[in-house]
């Protein structure tokens, strides 16, 4: 049974056809990596899952609810779907702890004590318990992104979405964030990850989806996709990504 299901999804920005008849299913507990050239629609695709980006037509079913249906309680659904952004988007006016506890307290109506206890556990999990009273501006990019992941996990989501979580980071910080994501992948949560980190895909992804010009051109296991891409465009893309120049 799939937990995310795209059915003939189309998306236009004015005249620009950004998602073209996308159909895609992601099973519960699956880790799916989405890759493709810049501008191919990866961000748009992943943002449609929780309707940060509304779609033009088609259906997207997430945890058995059609997100495009106006009767769906989209805020309740979003609370069950974590989203990690390329640029972290932590709240600069709040401490690390408050960044993490705000939504559990205000959306989930948890008590402050319960939310803080959980937040500290999550900070330990991402290796940042000692930073709980720091402000985002006092953290490195890699630390901010780990806090952002903890913030998402604090809602105990059923699905975690990642949009290029390491591409805004200095190279020496990519590893620490990927490590947190790998641990998470092994915990059994459903993950949809837009990334060009092919090492991550090889190690923990169950499936790789290749997007080009808004179309899903290939879907395969990482082993298949990396060793024997079927389309020329995927071959070309992999050549660029894996070249030492990159």
């Amino acid at each position: 049974m799939s937990i995310i299901r795209f059915v003939n999804v189309n998306k236009w920005f004015k005249q620009l056809h950004v998602l073209k008849n996308v159909s895609l299913e992601i099973a519960q507990g699956e880790v799916v990596v989405v890759c493709g050239p810049s501008g191919s629609g990866k961000s748009t695709l992943i943002r449609t899952v929780n309707q940060l980006e509304p779609i033009s037509d088609g259906e997207i079913w997430v945890i058995d609810q059609n997100v495009a249906d106006h009767r769906t309680d989209i805020n309740a659904l979003r609370a069950d779907v974590g989203f990690v952004f390329q640029h972290f988007n932590l709240y600069p006016h709040l401490s690390v702890l408050d960044n993490i506890t705000l939504a559990p307290i205000k959306v989930r109506k948890q008590s402050r004590e319960a939310a803080e206890q959980k937040a500290v556990q999550l900070l330990e999990r991402v290796g940042l318990a000692h930073k709980k009273d720091a402000f985002p501006s006092q953290l490195s990019g890699g630390q901010q992104q780990r806090v952002a992941i903890a913030r998402g996990l604090a809602m105990e989501p059923k699905i975690m979405l990642f949009d290029e979580p390491t591409s805004a980071l200095d190279p020496e910080m990519i590893g620490e964030v990927l490590q947190v994501m790998k641990d998470l992948a092994l915990s059994g949560i459903t993950m949809m990850v837009v990334t060009h980190e092919m090492g991550f895909a090889r190690e923990v992804a169950h499936r790789v989806v290749f997007l080009d010009h808004g179309e899903v051109l290939e879907q395969a296991t990482p082993a298949e996709f990396f060793s024997a891409p079927k389309t020329d465009r995927a071959k070309q893309f992999l050549k660029q990504i894996l070249s030492p120049m990159h």
């Binding site: 940060l52 805020n75 609370a79 069950d80 989203f83 988007n89 709240y91 939504a103 959306v107 998402g152």
Partner: peptide, 17 residues
């Protein structure tokens, strides 16, 4: 920045929150 609103929305905040 717009990203602040997206981050809140993604966590399930209403417009008012």
């Amino acid at each position: 920045p717009k990203g602040q609103v997206y981050a809140g929305s993604a966590l399930g905040f209403t417009y008012g929150q």
